[in-house]
Nucleic acid binder design. Sequence first.
DNA 1: AAATATTCATATATCAGATATTTTAATGTT
DNA 2: AACATTAAAATATCTGATATATGAATATTT
Lengths: 260, 260
Amino acid sequence: MFKSAKTHRLSHNIVKQIRNAILAGDLKPGDRLPSEKELAISFNVSKASLREAIRSLEALGLVEVLQGVSGGVFIREVDLETARNSLFNYIFFQNPAIHEFTQLRLLIEPQMAALAAIHSTDEDLAFFNENLEQTSRELDSGEFYYKLDSEFHHRIATISNNRLIIFVIDSLKNAIVNLKLQLELDSRFSISVFDSHQRIVDAFRKKDAETALEEMRNHIISVDKELVAYCDADSPFISVSDPVDDEKESSPEKDTAAVR
Amino acid sequence: MFKSAKTHRLSHNIVKQIRNAILAGDLKPGDRLPSEKELAISFNVSKASLREAIRSLEALGLVEVLQGVSGGVFIREVDLETARNSLFNYIFFQNPAIHEFTQLRLLIEPQMAALAAIHSTDEDLAFFNENLEQTSRELDSGEFYYKLDSEFHHRIATISNNRLIIFVIDSLKNAIVNLKLQLELDSRFSISVFDSHQRIVDAFRKKDAETALEEMRNHIISVDKELVAYCDADSPFISVSDPVDDEKESSPEKDTAAVR
DNA sequence: AAATATTCATATATCAGATATTTTAATGTT
DNA sequence: AACATTAAAATATCTGATATATGAATATTT
């Protein structure tokens, strides 16, 4: 009925104003805001309050701050990583069961595999070949990281050309990997994943949508079974060392043991 | 090759430490952190830097800050709204086409409708009856808001009992409504939506999964067509007045004109 | 002339400490 | 018992000084 009459935090007010300016199109990625001093004067607040607002906007991924001359506060596009991390934070507390991941994946990924079978270009196929080859090498060396696996599914999503679907698939994989495990993979599992991937790519080569869909479906289900066997027993839950931890330079995908 | 040797911001360092403590389980929702003064001493930084860190954590939805005695910084679960808003920010810059939303919805919602037909309880059916009745009243009064529509789809998602699916459906609807429009609805459209909803609920009552799925599918497709007709012509894009703007007390669902 | 080093201007980053405000609980008053 | 007052603890905000980072202009060297 009535609006809260609470005097909000100054920094919140500033965040709101700037965010609205972005959403209204008055501020666009690349735009540079006036300097802290000037902003503080414009908003009629102290530098400290203004900086708190900037920190919030930074956390939301809406601005980026550079130091030095010609530095300042720049509007930027919120990137996939920021959104994905936020979703990860949410999922962390929800701590969904494996089957919730699987259910959602099953709704999306088999269909995307079917699409990919039809629409994949030579370039895409070359990518998948290279991906399989590298995976094979990693299997031989006993060093199976989930990066290649991640890229495999990501690429399939990409062929859909649907950014929402890419986001969902990407986020799911990220969450599964970082949330549910850090399991020492047994190599039998890795090989089974590799085999699945091979069969899927094979269907791509033959442009056989039906088979691609079915193989992806089987793949997801078999991964589900493995994960359930691993996790749900005692649910080790999580071990956060690097994954969500570090900055851009070591992205989550880099150095976490593999899954799927 | 080499890791960035850049000395990060102090506040970032603090955010990282606290976030990691949360993810590691050392800090749990409801936990209260020491006071600003004490924290500043612990981290060996000034109060200003510490507060910037707290603002970031607050923006991420990981903490909540209360003033006054027995106030302080409290760890909290990241809620759906925070994650959804972050996704919205991402989607805003991506600005996906209607068909991208539709494609993803088609993968999920018809299946969920089928599930709901099978699993909906008397309580659920009562909810849908009430929802339809209220919608009908709003139609009569000419005041069609998207809140009821939103709740309709949300409830179906809820029956899936899958938090990831609920998140996706909820976020999609939120994004569609806030991003794509603020169209003056023509009442023919509202009525068509209402009819679809009625047919879907009817299938629920009969526990007819097949029909529920098909009706939801038709519903989404017809909404897609309407939206494309409305939007893609000149793409009014957005008008941000309240939707993503205000605080908890006026949630996005409240006062934006309806869609679908 | 080109490469390198230095200086300078301008931002942000950080600190220290004072003051204001909010909120709860304890205390007093009627 | 109900209500008002006060005290204490916490965040909120402001001010102004200092540190640091960065790019560009300038000077120096080769």
